[in-house]
Structures are given as C-alpha cells and as structure tokens.
Amino acid sequence: MNPFLQLTLTPMLIGVLAACACALPGNFLLLRRQSLIGDAISHVALPGIVAAYLLTGTLSATAMFLGATGAALLAVALIELVRRLGRVEPGAAMGVVFTTLFALGVLMLEQSASRNLHLDVEHALYGNLESLIWLEGTSWSALLDPAALAGMPPQIFRLALVLAGLALFTVTFWRELMIGTFDPSFAQSIGARPRLFNIALVGLVAIAAVASFDAVGSIIVIAMFICPPAAARLMTDRLSRQIWWSMGFASASAILGYVLAGYGPMWFGSPHSVSAAGMIATVSGVILAGTALFGPRRRQNLAA
C-alpha cells in the first residue's frame, strides 16, 4: 500500500497538467485583452459535451471534443447574429450568447441526470479530480511497470499530450505569436499571418478547455486561463519569463490547492475535506491578489 501514489499523485498531476495547459495559451489571451474568450469557450463547451453525450451515449474524448467544437462554432455564429439583429456591442452579444448556452447546458444536464446517466452539474463545475486515483500504484516500483502505468486515469495521458502539443506550438511559432499579439498590422505587413494565428490560438484554447474540462471542471479551466498569466505579468517585463512564471503559478495553485482541500479543513478541526477544484481556483486567485499587492511590476501596470 502506498496512499500517496494511489490516492494523491495522479489527481495532483492531472491538476498540474490541466492548469498548465490552460495557463499557457491564457498568456496570449491576456496580452490580446481577450481573456474572456477562455471563459466563454469553457462555458459553451458544456452544452456541446452534453449534446454529444446524449447523441452518442458515450463519454469518449472524440465525441466530447466534436460536441464542444460544434458548440463553439454555433456560439460564434449566434454572437454575430445577436450583434447584427440586436445592434448591441460585441462584448454584450458575447455575454448573452455564452450565458444562455451554458444555462441550456445545465438544463440538458438535468434532463440527462434524471435518466440516470454519468454526467451531472457538479461534475461540470468541479470535475472529478478526487476520483482520478491510481489503484495499481501500490509501490514506487509501479512507476516503472508498464502494466501498472496502464491503469493510470486516461486523463493524464490525454492532458500530457495536449500540454506537449501546446508547448511545441508555442515554441515553434513563438515569433508569429509575439509579433501578432504586440502589433498585428506590422505582423500582416511582414507576412507573419496574424489572422491565421489568431484563429489557431482560439482553436488551442478550445482544445485546452475541452481536454481539461472533463478532468477538473469549468471552475479551474476559467481560473487558469486568467489568474496565472495575470499574476505572471506582474512579476516580469519579458514575455518568455512571464510564461515561465505562469507555469509556476499554475502548478503551485494545483499542488497547493489539492493539498489544502484534503488537509486544510482538518487543521481547522473539520472532518470533511472541501472540493479540490474550488480550492485550486481559490489559491490561483490568492496568488493573483498577492502579486497585485507585492509584484515588482505592478505600479506601471496600474498606471497604464
């Protein structure tokens, strides 16, 4: 028996991977003043995933991703429609469409729950981090045993793959992403294809959101798109360092949040642990508050 390996390692690792996968593209969203897009896409993913589930009857990753992507496309079309027909500003159109679709998702979830299926509102909001355990991890040698490793929750491999893909994309197209974010007109004039990379970025945000959503729920996804990059921006004036800081903050939120959720209430004499997802998101918010108060680069940001 090894309680750390069996019960703590995998949920913590999944938390770290999901947090980093969301925070990485979140850095560019933040600098483009498009952080709301991460929020929006994670909201829209819900009805898409439920619809895909109701249609196919499975929770397979492919069905969920297609469902979420379809919902995102539908949302973009609806926003354009509301903006034109309702003659409202884009931000308001976005807000209306995303909250409505999310609400629709909740209604659909309730319907599916009444039919005794494996999705419910709590799952969508909090994920199921605590249940992603690794029973085969009975001893440290299991980490080298392929048979035991195969028993790890599949979310680990999926998220590791997504994070690796995002990292590869960011390194490969670093210059395009940086120039296109800072100065899109100039980027267009030198052929750095800012529009294409803008679309690619939104696509990556959708992939990160959907891959993380199932494991950790929408609370963490929304928090991680915004909090670690925003806190990191207050620590440095170089983009590359900002991204490293954001990865550090995202990992720290996941690890600290998971530990605090499990043991924190005990320190205060309560026998019940609290939601890991809620605690991880809270820790990321506390880190942001800390950097906003004490971060070395905060003054000039406030002045801007």
């Binding site: 600098l31 100065d183 921006r233 440095t236 004036d237 801007a304």
Partner: peptide, 9 residues
Amino acid sequence: GVDWDFPAT
C-alpha cells in the same frame, strides 16, 4: 495603435 505595456524590451 499598439499596447506599449506589452512585456518586451
């Protein structure tokens, strides 16, 4: 037309 608060030297 650009955001001079961008983290770059």
